[in-house]
Amino acid sequence: MSLLRVSSLSKSFGGLKAVDDVSFDLEAGQLLALLGPNGAGKSTCFNMVNGQLQPSSGSIRLDDHELVGKRPRDIWRLGVGRTFQIAATFNSMTVLENVQMALVSRERKTFGLWKPAGSRYADEAMTLLEQVGMGADANRACGVLAYGDVKRVELAIALANRPKLLLMDEPTAGMAPKERNELMALTKRLVTEHKIGVLFTEHSMDVVFAYADRLIVLARGKLIAEGDAETIRNDARVQEVYFGTGKTFQPRAPLHEAAGGPQEQGALQ
Rank of each mutant, 00 (worst) to 15 (best):
S2H: 06
A158K: 05
G221I: 04
N98G: 05
M48R: 04
L155P: 00
N161I: 05
V95H: 00
L223I: 12
L199M: 11
A212Q: 02
S2M: 10
L96S: 00
E240Q: 15
T248Q: 11
C45D: 03
R233M: 08
E97K: 04
Y211R: 05
L31H: 04
D123M: 11
N181H: 14
C142N: 07
T83F: 07
D213V: 01
N98V: 00
K11F: 04
S204L: 11
R82Q: 14
L113V: 15
F90N: 13
L31S: 04
V99L: 05
R77K: 15
F84K: 07
H203Y: 14
R237P: 02
V19M: 00
L9S: 05
V22L: 10
R108Y: 11
T201D: 06
T44M: 06
S92W: 11
E202T: 09
Q85R: 13
A236V: 14
T172N: 06
G148V: 09
L190I: 15
V104Q: 02
I86D: 15
V153F: 02
S2P: 03
N161M: 09
E264G: 10
M48P: 02
G148E: 07
V132I: 12
M48V: 08
L31N: 00
L167K: 04
F243A: 10
R252W: 14
K195I: 08
P37G: 12
G244Q: 09
A122L: 06
Q30K: 13
R108G: 07
K151M: 08
T201V: 15
A117M: 07
R61M: 13
A219F: 10
T110N: 13
S10I: 05
Y147C: 13
I86Q: 15
E154K: 04
D63V: 09
